[in-house]
Amino acid sequence: MNEPLILGIETSCDETGIGIVRGSTLLADAVASSVEEHARFGGVVPEVASRAHVEAMIPTIQRACSDAGVSLRDVDAIAVTGGPGLVGALLIGTATAKALASALTIPLYAVNHLAGHVVVDELEHGPLPQIAVGMLVSGGHSSLLLIHDDAEDVTSLGATIDDAAGEAFDKIARVLGLPFPGGPWIDKSAMEGNRNAIVFPRGLTSSKDQLEHQYDFSFSGLKTAVARWVTQQQAAGHVVSVPDVAASFQEAVVDVLTKKAIAACLDHGVEHLILGGGVAANSRLRVMAQERCDAAGIQLRVPSPKLCTDNGAMIAALGSKLVRQGVAPSPLNFPTLSVLPMSTVVMHQ
């Protein structure tokens, strides 16, 4: 018998993503992004994102079905991001998913977006290890998770206490006069710069912070420090080297991220680290994570950049795993929550 065919819907931020998987084989990953519409606002505007989701949803589903060579009638279950995310954006995905599942009389799984970021790696690199640390870094989240191979047992080890890592990239890009979204531009500019030119602060790494916030992140102090440094240099009449600031800022972020991720692995006796989220596409993060994992004897798994950013394939991959494990589906009246605890991988009420 064929493995189940799962359609995944993702609308937690500014990407309308529809993914189709059969078992753990990726058949389609269609994404419509409204990122360009947000560029002039310097960040994602929830109302603009919601309007774009409504317009993109049906064409993106049709494109995914056509890419996968399947008909909606062939789909065995629907998976949808139930949270966390922008509630207005999430609602378009969940409303669509409920109607599709109900109209096609197939099961519906409302799942946790963050777990999807980890499980998506199965599509490229095979089954999850028995236990792994997941580090998810994007414009919307920065968290460290401990995830077991059934994907139902997930614990949050830490998260950002202020800005998400990607937000810090966006804000520093604006300070440096680089476009939104800032991540790719900072990455590119940093390649020409000296990452040791300026020593910026590493948030929550002092021994005092380590007690209370061992695996948490903070990027707002770093952001302020970079902005202040730039202003001071300009006030003193010095020319600011954008590549040097970009490289030094990026180094500070990546240093903290990788240090805490490796520590989480070692402290929990875990041999695998999985990266996810848009910031996982950062070239310096990938290099440093690999170096530090090698040094610590940890296996690093990083999905390809397209599967790191928000997409429907990750939701379909998680849905598929839950279906194969025989997990009960979500009821049709599940609520949509902007905050969904990590312990809830599938919503059951």
Binding site: H53, M57, L91, A95, T96, K98, A99, A103
Partner: peptide
């Protein structure tokens, strides 16, 4: 109210697509 409208419209479109 936009949120309600979007729920109605997205659902209606999905029923139409499925059927």
């Amino acid at each position: 109210a936009y949120t309600g409208l979007r729920v109605g419209v997205s659902s209606a479109q999905a029923y139409g697509l499925a059927w």
